[in-house]
């Protein structure tokens, strides 16, 4: 493999990894526009409870997450196979979900993987298909630690500090 093709592969892997980070940011901050932008318009998603087109998935998941108190997704173990303008990826996710059951706050800790197909069109990589697989999960009653904590607690768009920092030119 030439030095150039190794560099091109490295650049492609970085771009593809950032798709998952933007996907997580979009879910965690309830950023519909950002979530839409990581899929091709003709893309598809299979999340088990939902399977269908990417735009319909965005509607479904935004509605689901809006009903929860908070969501935080970490991604790791990103393994990408490149084949020209197509790529396949396995991406681990760890999700921390905070929601109420019968009026009482609970934490759900869940882990799984995304099995992805990506496509490069006009130089831009996006998700063409994402399947979400769950590996394990547990739900437990939680303390309401957010009460009285003030402004350094995560929030949704546009209230999260991420967006206010952006206005100040501090964060993208």
């Amino acid at each position: 493999m030439s030095a150039d093709s190794r560099f091109e592969a490295l650049l492609a892997r970085q771009e593809i990894a950032e798709l998952s980070y933007r996907y997580s940011r979009a879910c965690d901050r309830l950023d519909r526009e950002l979530l839409t932008s990581v899929y091709w318009p003709d893309g598809t998603d299979d999340h088990g409870a939902f399977a269908g087109s990417a735009p319909d998935y965005v509607d479904w998941v935004m509605g689901l997450l809006a009903g929860w108190v908070a969501v935080h997704h970490d991604n790791g173990n990103i393994l990408i196979e490149l084949e020209g303008d197509t790529a396949f990826g396995e991406v681990h996710w760890t999700g921390y979900y905070s929601y109420e059951i019968d009026g009482r706050l609970h934490d759900q800790l869940a882990v799984g993987r995304y099995l992805d197909r990506y496509e490069r069109r006009s130089g831009e990589w996006r998700i063409l298909h994402r399947t979400c697989v769950s590996d394990w999960s547990r739900v437990e009653p939680a303390l309401d630690w957010r009460k009285g904590r003030g402004r350094l607690v995560g929030a949704r768009k546009p209230d999260d500090l991420l967006y206010r920092h952006r206005q100040l030119g501090i964060v993208p």
């Binding site: 908070a70 905070s98 934490d107 303390l143 630690w145 350094l152 995560g154 999260d160 920092h165």
Partner: peptide, 8 residues
């Protein structure tokens, strides 16, 4: 700036 999303 550090922001908290989750504590247990």
């Amino acid at each position: 700036t550090g922001i908290s999303d989750f504590e247990r």
